[in-house]
């Protein structure tokens, strides 16, 4: 069986929904009269649509749905936010433990001997230098010395910033929101 192009197949729905413009409708009807596979597909889709039109997709919740909602209106934030808060608190604890460990290691001098230098004066391979640039003189760039202690200190600072953000989102905001709603 010849495969029907997807665009043409999708056009069948516009045809069934009556949203196809006159020119496309004419074109499709001509195609349908010459293409038995397309006609068969249209019949198939039409049957499904007819089938669906007789079935309501609407589902009914439990009888006490409204009562439960009304009974929980004062419980805010809802369950999902509580879960977010709980996850946030775990994240906060994790960050603080990591920061604490890193601080202990830095203060005990573990990273004092770790040194590295970033050399920016790497020579470019000859193939990357344009041939029509004979006077290409590389400029001398400074080498950057980095100590392990400095890097860990930066990481600790970044983590403290993240911890503050998590504290704000997971603890302080929900707390103040709850107080605000309790005050109403």
């Amino acid at each position: 069986m010849k495969k029907i192009p997807q665009a043409l197949e999708e056009m069948l729905f516009d045809y069934l929904d009556g949203t196809l413009n006159a020119a496309d409708k004419q074109r499709l009807e001509t195609e349908l009269s010459h293409n038995p596979e397309l006609k068969a597909r249209l019949d198939e889709l039409q049957n499904v649509e007819l089938w669906l039109s007789k079935i309501s997709l609407e589902e009914i919740p439990s009888r006490n749905f409204t009562q439960q909602v009304m009974g929980k209106l004062d419980q805010y934030p809802a369950r999902s936010s509580t879960l977010i808060s709980r996850n946030g608190i775990f994240l906060l604890i994790g960050i603080l433990v990591a920061v604490g460990l890193a601080t202990i290691l830095v203060s005990s001098g573990v990273f004092d001997g770790v040194q590295t230098t970033i050399n920016l004066n790497q020579e470019l391979p000859q193939k990357y230098i344009p041939k029509n640039l004979p006077q290409f003189v590389p400029k001398s760039l400074p080498a950057i010395a980095l100590s392990g202690k400095l890097i860990v200190n930066i990481v600790i600072l970044l983590n403290l910033g993240l911890a503050w953000l998590v504290l704000d989102r997971a603890v302080l905001r929900p707390l103040f929101q709850r107080r605000m709603h309790a005050g109403h």
Binding site: E58, P61, F65, T66, Q68, V69
Partner: peptide, 27 residues
């Protein structure tokens, strides 16, 4: 409620969870 529940149930495919999610959404 019916439409809200239907949407939640189609996503979650679990009536109990869908009911809870729909109630949460109303709250």
């Amino acid at each position: 409620k019916s439409y809200a529940f239907t949407i939640a149930n189609k996503i979650l495919q679990n009536r109990a969870e869908a009911e809870e999610a729909a109630q949460d959404a109303f709250i």
